[in-house]
Amino acid sequence: MVLYVVLTVGSLLMLSPFIWMVLTALKSPNEVGAFTWLPKEYHWENFVEAMKTAPFLNYFRNSLIIAIGETAVTLAVCTMAGYALAKLPLRGAKSLLTYFIVLLMVPFQIILVPLFLVVKSVPLFGGNDILGMGGTGWLNSWWGLIIPLAAGPMYTFLARQFYVSLPSELADAARMDGVGEFGIFLKVMTPLVKPALVTIFVFQVEGAWNAFLWPLMITSTDEIRPLQLGLAIFSQDQSDIQWPYLMAGTALAALPMIVLFIFAQKRFVEGMASAGLKG
C-alpha cells in the first residue's frame, strides 16, 4: 500500500511539468503571471494561433527528417562498432573502448567550433574544392544537420554493452555452419539485442528532435531549420515571452516523443536495465 502511495506521488510529480505546460498553453497572456493551476477560460485557440505564427509544418517536417536520418545512421554504424568492440578480436579493443568512454565526457560545447570548421571544410560540397576550400561545405545542408550528430560515442558504448553480454558460442556455432562474419552480426547476434536497438532508437530520436544549438549554428534558413528553433520565436523578446504560445508549441512538439516512448517503453526499460544505464 505504502509503495503504491509513494509511486503515485512520484508519478504525479513527474507528470506535473507536463500538466503545467498544457494548462499554461490554455491560459490568456495575463493569467500566466499569477500562480493558478486552472485557466479562468480555456483558450484552445492558442494552439492554432501559435502554429500560425510561423511555418511550423515545415519545422515539424524538418525535425522528422533529421531525427530519422540521424537515427538510421546511428543504428547502422553504432551497432557495427559496438559489435566489433565486443566480439571481434581487435588489437587495441580495450584502448578503443576507453577512447569511447573518454569521448562520453567531452561536452558538446567544447567541440562546437572545431566541428563547425570540419563541416564547413568538407571537400566537394557546397562549392568547396578537393581541399575543402572556397565554399560552405555542409553548412546549411541536410548533410550538416544529420551526419555530425549521428553515431555518438554513447550509442557505440551502449551497443557494445549488449553484445558483450551475448555468449560467444552462438557466433562460433554460426561460423561452424559457414555463416560469414557480417552474417553473424546481422542475422545471429543483432536480433538478440532488440532492447538495445530500441533504447538507441529512443535516445537518438529524442536527442535529434530536441537539438537546438547545432542546427542554430549551421543553418541560416528556415527551409531546413528544425522545430526547436521555431519555438524560440516565442521567447525572442526575453522581457515579453509569449508563454501561452510557447507552451502550446512545446506541448505539440513533445507529443511525438511521448507517443514514441509509450510504444517503445517495454523494450526501452529492458534495454536500460540490461545495459545498467540510468535515464
Binding site: 497572456p29 495575463n30 500566466v32 503571471g33 499569477a34 500562480f35 522581457s239 515579453d240 515571452i241 508563454w243
Partner: peptide, 10 residues
C-alpha cells in the same frame, strides 16, 4: 512572477 513580467503591471 512566473511570467517574469514587471509586478506593477499585474
Amino acid at each position: 512572477n512566473s511570467a517574469k513580467k514587471p509586478l506593477v503591471y499585474t
